[in-house]
Design a protein around this nucleic acid. Structure first.
Lengths: 202, 202
DNA sequence: TGAATCATGTAAACAGTTACATGATTGG
DNA sequence: CCAATCATGTAACTGTTTACATGATTCA
């Protein structure tokens, strides 16, 4: 198959030869968010949590490392906002060159399939090394998690995708729909797998 | 979700604090494969391609780096096999301590949700920066890929999961079923998204 | 002849992570 | 009083990747 690597919590990430002038995934994510309006590093770490966090969540320190790099490359500009009751902050705005770079990154497309980095599945794959109950525990946890996500996504959905909404909202709707499709698949699979595991157990 | 990295041009992977005595994902993957019988580094890189490659595929150099480390930790033993028509090779066998470490890794479970590292979705999310046609192209590529995977998985399926097969085969069946569920979800989502995109286009 | 397979490894780079540091202000 | 929020950044590390090197043998 193919892949790529990455991970989280477990995973690690691959080192891929970024075509040099192409953005890093983190750079693209941040640039994309900054493209929606002036944001500070702090704002960004919060949007990540509540927005694209589902499929990309750079570390806070990573965000602060990337921002000056974007300025240096001419993809964003920084402006200091003086505050009285809060620490001063830098807010960033995307430039035309930045928008261009972002567009190029989007168009470059995923070279290959799916990263599919998935330590969880690896654990299931080698499940015979432990007891069915242990694997069932993991699967149940996954199922619970999926249900939570589904509930969350259903809450977010009405806010998006209505007719007449801006295109950017439509795209967010597509991603949200993917989340629903994905987590519903998780639930179905978990149920079937739990049934299979209980047979192994008895 | 979560993520991981790779690319090929794109993903990268995270760096997670391995609880020190716990195995790395790559170590676990290799140890698990070696647990199925004596294997050389070369054998491993081939099993990765055809087996667990769907959700974990270490680089060849990574495999050769990990193997001596496993021996050093006492999780595997190495034996030189002298060959006439082929270069001599080292074959590795899992030890009891290795089996133990593998079991602990499996039981430790995924600390957090899903890696969900997914640059592809990030591209869709920021799709408004380019034209609907470009995004549609990416989605179509994803759909095609999913169809190919489904065909492949359906071919592999009959070989596994029959009644009376060893437990390890059952677990492989669970993983295979996940693949089917997942790629079928991709196809459904792609169809819906392509429909949505064509509306944006017109 | 030359490409593919078998077989192993080194070196350098990379994207991203954790842990830590600092400090004012708000709210319970 | 103390925890949480706002706000930014440095340092050290990690797991993994690409690129490269080497060489015999099989197969078209």
């Amino acid at each position: 198959m193919d892949h790529t690597k990455q991970q989280r919590g477990e995973g690690q990430g691959p080192a891929v030869p970024t075509p040099s002038d192409l953005l890093t995934t983190t750079e693209a994510a941040i640039l994309g968010l900054v493209g929606g309006g002036e944001l500070s590093g702090y704002d960004l770490s919060r949007s990540v949590e509540t927005g694209i966090g589902m499929f990309w969540s750079p570390a806070q320190s990573g965000i602060y490392a990337v921002l000056p790099r974007l300025v240096e490359k001419g993809y964003a500009t920084a402006r200091t906002v003086v505050q009285e009751r809060r620490p001063d902050k830098q807010v960033y705005r995307i430039t035309d060159a930045g928008r261009d770079a972002l567009r190029r990154w989007i168009e470059a497309g995923p070279p290959e399939p799916d990263p599919a980095y998935n330590p969880f599945l690896l654990r299931v794959y080698f499940g015979a090394e432990t007891s069915p109950g242990v694997v069932a525990g993991h699967v149940e946890a996954r199922r619970r998690e999926a249900e939570e996500r589904i509930a969350l996504l259903r809450e977010l959905k009405p806010a998006l995708g209505d007719v007449g909404t801006p295109a950017s909202e439509q795209y967010r709707g597509f991603v949200l729909d993917w989340g629903l499709e994905y987590y519903e698949a998780v639930v179905r699979w978990a149920d079937a797998t739990l049934a299979g595991l209980s047979e192994l157990d008895g």
